[in-house]
Write a protein that binds this DNA or RNA. Sequence first.
DNA 1: CCTTGACTCTCCAGTAGCTGGAGGGTGTAT
DNA 2: ATACACCCTCCAGCTACTGGAGAGTCAAGG
Lengths: 273, 273
Amino acid sequence: MFKIGDFSKISRVPVKTLRYYDQLGLLKPVDVDRFSGYRYYAADQLPRLNRILALKDLGLSLQQIHILLDRDLDAGELRGMLLRRQAEIDQRVRQERERLARVEARLRLIETEGNMPDYEIVIKQVPPLRVASVRGVIPTYPEQGELWGALERELARQRFQTNEPCFTIYHDAEYRDRNIDSEVCEPVGSAPVESRGRVKVYELPAITAASIVHHGTFDTLTNAYNVILKWIEDNGYRICGPEREIYLHTGSPVRQDDPSYVTEVQFPVEKIN
Amino acid sequence: MFKIGDFSKISRVPVKTLRYYDQLGLLKPVDVDRFSGYRYYAADQLPRLNRILALKDLGLSLQQIHILLDRDLDAGELRGMLLRRQAEIDQRVRQERERLARVEARLRLIETEGNMPDYEIVIKQVPPLRVASVRGVIPTYPEQGELWGALERELARQRFQTNEPCFTIYHDAEYRDRNIDSEVCEPVGSAPVESRGRVKVYELPAITAASIVHHGTFDTLTNAYNVILKWIEDNGYRICGPEREIYLHTGSPVRQDDPSYVTEVQFPVEKIN
DNA sequence: CCTTGACTCTCCAGTAGCTGGAGGGTGTAT
DNA sequence: ATACACCCTCCAGCTACTGGAGAGTCAAGG
């Protein structure tokens, strides 16, 4: 019979941990003095403790170990848990490697640029979005106003007012500065709005998007485009849909030259391999 | 200006998380209504939030991010943190891969054996140990008693009494059942015990050991030896010193045939590569 | 028998980054 | 007026411990 300190020395498990395992019911001392509360362990409790350590070392939680040990070590059950663990660790390793790659990319960026980048790119899940939209080919960007006008008029007619940011989807597969196939959208949630004329109401599918936020006038927005496109390429993603340009400033009339404007660009992407 | 829910929708960050970041001072809303306590965020806070998300994604803690952002993004500091992170992740990946290997080994074991093994092997750090010992070549195992006798007599003479388990070190490089070079040891801690005659008092170095605990009579101890030797080979370790056999039963007279005996075998090992 | 020092006990708080819930106030639309 | 969505604060819980306070216990030495 060992007092907790001796048992701790033999097993190389901290006293606190032994007490914690006692509390969890994972490893109860064979005897507890009724008056002093002292815990007494027996040498033949070492196998159980070692089993706990071994399973813990495989990455199982104490709860899982508790279950396994108390069901008398059912091999099938253990196998199931280990298979799940295997998959988890496998994924874990992959994630950590990707993270490592990102850290390295960031380090290279610092080497070349000498300081923090002006932009951050974030991958986000965008949920399905019910929108009212007008799509059309416009000669040049400033003429998008006409599409917005059509959309606004119809929504006003249907007595709908949004408070969510509106955005444009650019359907061209490549960049152009003339004859741009653009679709101006306004989220309508579950409001009773219906398609009519050039205005279509429908649900955009959910996407996984690389996102960048630009702060400033529109004419410097191309910077953000360059940065995010490079990022997508560098980080093993592929563009898989038309990009969205989201106008985060509040207040409707879109002018090109307000330096307080905040615009988000989202490219739907998927991971390569 | 967005209420927290809208800002949450835009940024895809849960409301609770935004409140948490506010609490930490990591991202304060531009305005808080004095009366209702409502938080109001501005679109141009998105870059900061995204920077937080990006750095978090690299695995930095919120505390580290806080420091970085509030020192105006010192590139050198970030570089330092990222280099450290890189090393951490690198090690993490290695550890997880080793763990994966162990899980796979365990799964194979289950496949072949059909159930949980009887033994668990644990790697433990054994600290330096000051011992009194008697070493000698004994014809056969039962004759170890003579060495114990010599040790006990001398320690009794020096008025020393142990409460720690005693053990034997086997110095033969390979297994033999005759003329065994064995050293019987008793830990003496910092007690005032001195070498005298055949009894040597000195400090054993710390070791990293693979350990197995055997429960039962001595004649089945070879099982444990077989299991641990196989384990060492299978798990990429190499034996790098003489093994220790530790007698964990309390009470001195060692008889061979007590089925309640608990014995631990420790092989000093090092990881290959 | 008393003291000293090592050991043990229980209980509480803290770790990181949230998440969930209770209980109550606010804002807008009908 | 009322319904409803939204917001607030505060508290508890997650994992596997770790550290500390304050108090009791044990064995040895004087």
